[in-house]
Design a protein around this nucleic acid. Structure first.
Length: 267
DNA sequence: ATGGTGGACGATCCA
């Protein structure tokens, strides 16, 4: 079984590329982020005509997550319990479309689009950190309740956990950039400390291995990227991993997303 | 002057 995660940066703008990629990648499950669409604009037919069931959570032109599966798609959840809302309270704001879960071929899959902190001192930064903490607490609880649970937390974490996960750590620090700060890295590390494993890194070791390249400044041809997309697995799922890769080819050419798919193979 | 790119929306926000 092959599972994958991919921030597509608009499912409508990327529909043809996503279709072609599904056909050549042969994945069983694809967790998608940044669909940037409401349900009424989602390309349901494209997935179904290629043999995939698909569940989508999209409220407006921002965010949006989906799971496509050809090995079943059950018990769909939109938002995780306690998912923080940006600003004020649940009474005055709605949770953003950043998390969708489903059980596919015996694996509990979550497609996650972690909030962008925007800037070190922006109010979106504490929102991001709280969002990750609640997710980690929830996910740890699911595994504690069922230690054999095959759980995959997949998506765009908007964090580069190690210095080697960005093309020049000194440049990032000089910019006072997000994604590499200590609190963000601690929020990521908390998943590992809770027993989750990074499923792709052992098979895609760096340095110089990335999942995202900014559209500007010729970042892709200059090999100046960031590793910010991950599949984290519960212990039972991690024990099944036989390989992983980052499909850097998909970042090439006109009309590419700025993120590449990350694929994990299970026995 | 500098987001120099790209997407959605609608004349601006987001990444």
């Amino acid at each position: 079984m092959k599972i994958a995660t991919w921030n597509v940066n608009s499912i409508r703008a990327r529909a043809d590329r996503v279709e072609a990629w599904l056909q050549r990648s042969d994945v069983d499950v694809l967790a998608i982020q940044e669909t940037k669409a409401k349900d009424e604009n989602f390309p349901w037919d494209m997935f179904e005509s290629n043999g995939y069931e698909v569940a989508h959570f999209g409220l407006n032109q921002w965010n949006g997550v989906a799971i496509a599966s050809r090995v079943g798609l059950d018990d769909v959840e939109r938002t995780f319990p306690g998912q923080p809302h940006f600003g004020k309270t649940e009474e005055t704001t709605a949770a953003e479309a950043r998390a969708i879960g489903a059980t596919c071929g015996g694996v509990r899959i979550w497609s996650l689009y972690v909030p962008n902190g925007r800037a070190v001192n922006d109010p979106h930064m504490p929102y991001k950190l709280e969002w990750l903490k609640i997710l980690k607490d929830q996910a740890a609880g699911w595994v504690e309740a069922d230690p054999q649970l095959n759980l995959a937390l997949m998506g765009d974490f908007n964090i580069a956990p190690r210095d080697e996960d960005v093309w020049d750590i000194d440049w990032f620090r000089a910019q006072n950039a997000t994604h590499i700060t200590e609190p963000e890295r601690a929020a990521f590390q908390a998943f590992l400390d809770a027993g989750f494993q990074d499923l792709s890194r052992p098979y895609t070791e760096g340095p110089g291995v990335y999942t995202y390249w900014d559209y500007t400044q010729l970042r892709f041809p200059k090999k100046q990227g960031m590793r910010i997309d991950f599949a984290l697995g519960s212990p039972a799922l991690a024990a099944r991993v036989t390989g992983a890769h980052i499909d850097r080819e998909e970042r090439k050419g006109k009309g590419a997303s700025d993120h590449a798919p990350v694929i994990v193979e299970l026995d």
